[in-house]
Amino acid sequence: MKFSSNRLSIAEVKEMDMVDYLFKLGYEPSKIRYPDFWYPSPLREEKTASFKVNRKLNKWYDHGLGKGGNLIDFAILYHGCTVGEFLQQLGGDLSLQKPLIRQAVDEDKPENQIKVLQEFSLSSYALLRYLEQRRIPVDIADKYCREIRYELAGKNYYGIGFKNDLGGFEIRNPYFKASSSPKTITTINNGAKEAAVFEGFTDFLSFKSIHKNEPEDRFDFVVLNSVSFFEKARPFMEQHDSIRLYLDRDTTGRNYSRYALSLNEKYKDESTLYQNHKDLNDWVMNFGKAQKKQLKPRL
């Protein structure tokens, strides 16, 4: 499936997370000192990581080349294309986030796969603090998530794991996000007539915290774990009388919401609830801050 091939604006592309974009191209950071993510340069051959992404600024700098900039600056060097060619090609397939020209790392090779070593109840201070910062109650997270110890490229890491229908995990920690194979959707079937649909599990957990006093069987749930699984989720979603979409407010999420509304009148776009935020969890994290700022007494 493709959406309109209309060219995306430069501002829209600059909103794309640089670390996520490099991950989709097959690049993992070799060192993280937040907000700096260090990589062996994707633009040249090197053994020592000297390519830095500042995630807070969403900018990169290659110390070996003495060049840096935003995602578009990187893309025209990496893909060997013009700005116009890059924007045009993204316009058709941005929702799927496919590498445009080359896949730098073969993700099917064993050395590039995540191996889950252990899973247990959430307990690490850093992860509990991460949940607190995202305003997700620990008791709700503990019901649907596990703490994961996993191996990647010979190194061990840990994170919050959310299991999908095939037994793989979506894994998050304060500095990184990853997935273990197999990757697919997560469905929760309570026998309800309504389904609530989310892109990621932090939005799902935020929804559960907002509706914590409602009956468990009011909704069935779908967590796509990637919007590219939307078609895969349709058979389960469309069994329901009503399908409430809580997708991200970025270009991809809005495109999928519009696409869903064109398919069937069962679909309802609920993202207007958080229209000035990037997703439901972002809205929950910032809820009330604007009001507090307005109420602050003048000096």
Rank of each mutant, 00 (worst) to 15 (best):
K2L: 15
K52V: 11
D250H: 02
L127Q: 02
V19F: 02
G68W: 04
R44M: 02
A196W: 02
E194S: 14
A104Q: 12
V105Q: 11
L152F: 01
K2T: 15
D142P: 07
Q239H: 02
F221L: 08
L87M: 04
Q113D: 06
K59Q: 09
D217R: 06
Y144W: 01
Y246S: 06
G84K: 14
T184G: 00
S50P: 10
Q113C: 05
D282K: 01
K293V: 09
T251N: 13
F207L: 11
R129H: 10
D142R: 14
G154R: 00
E85M: 09
K52A: 08
F51D: 04
P215F: 05
D17H: 09
G167I: 05
V197I: 12
R7N: 11
F37S: 05
I72L: 07
E15Q: 14
V222Q: 00
T202P: 09
E231N: 05
Y256A: 04
F207E: 02
A49E: 11
R258K: 13
R149W: 06
L245C: 07
L224W: 04
V19I: 11
L96V: 12
S262K: 10
K177G: 08
A192V: 09
A196Q: 04
S121L: 15
H211E: 11
L273W: 09
S4D: 03
I114V: 13
V116T: 06
N173S: 11
L247H: 02
A75G: 07
L100Y: 07
K278H: 03
K47T: 05
A260H: 00
Q97S: 10
I114S: 12
W60M: 06
I185K: 09
Y256K: 10
K177I: 11
F120C: 11
I140V: 08
